[in-house]
């Protein structure tokens, strides 16, 4: 039943699975690895039923656009992110214990970035995509991608500023931001 073509396609899907997991982990609420992996699984399931002509970078772009769409659908369905940034963008309340907790779950403060901007930023930063590729993933113009990345960084900077004036975490946060410990930098 399986043709050689199928097998090659599956290898390609397997090759991109780690990329999808990384992107999904950063994208989903509280960075739950379970929620992220379920998104990846649904994405792969769709991809297996889809057009197998895409390979390489084009395939990754397609997979990412599926995953992004699924995630948006989930966010809409559950309404879970009404507060955590879908359209709104909420910076953590400085100094309160609940903001401290949310920062532990969200060490990079990504939930302070509205979803549409977060998607663009993550693809550029984590997946090393060009603005043009991100534009294709998200169905935007290249200019809009540039704007969204810039907006995302503004939100993030605001959230970080909120943090650095906050007592309990300021020391560690500031230090981590200034000199990222080299041994922590496991990239790729």
């Amino acid at each position: 039943m399986e043709t050689i073509r199928d097998i090659g396609y599956r290898d390609e899907l397997a090759r991109f699975t780690p990329n999808l997991r990384r992107y999904a982990r950063a994208l989903v609420r509280n960075h739950s690895s379970e929620a992220a992996d379920e998104l990846v699984q649904t994405t792969l399931t769709r991809a297996l039923g889809g057009d197998q002509a895409r390979r390489g970078a084009r395939l990754l772009v397609w997979l990412v656009s599926i995953l992004t769409g699924l995630h948006r659908e989930q966010v809409r369905d559950i309404g879970a992110e009404q507060k955590l940034g879908f359209g709104g963008g909420e910076s953590p309340t400085v100094g309160s214990s609940s903001s401290w907790k949310s920062a532990r779950r969200d060490p990079a403060l990504l939930s302070s970035i509205p979803l549409e901007y977060r998607e663009a930023l993550l693809l550029v930063v984590l997946e090393n995509m060009s603005y043009a590729q991100v534009a294709e993933c998200l169905g935007l113009s290249v200019t809009t991608v540039g704007t969204r990345v810039a907006r995302a960084r503004d939100y993030l900077a605001k959230a970080q500023a909120g943090w650095s004036s906050d007592k309990p975490l300021s020391a560690t946060q500031g230090k981590a931001a200034r000199t990222p410990a080299p041994y922590l930098r496991v990239v790729k």
Binding site: P18, N19, R22, H31, A108, L121, L122, L126, A176, V186
Partner: peptide, 11 residues
């Protein structure tokens, strides 16, 4: 910072 926190998810 983002790469530090999430980069390893791919490995």
């Amino acid at each position: 910072a983002i790469r530090t926190v999430f980069g390893s998810a791919a490995s």
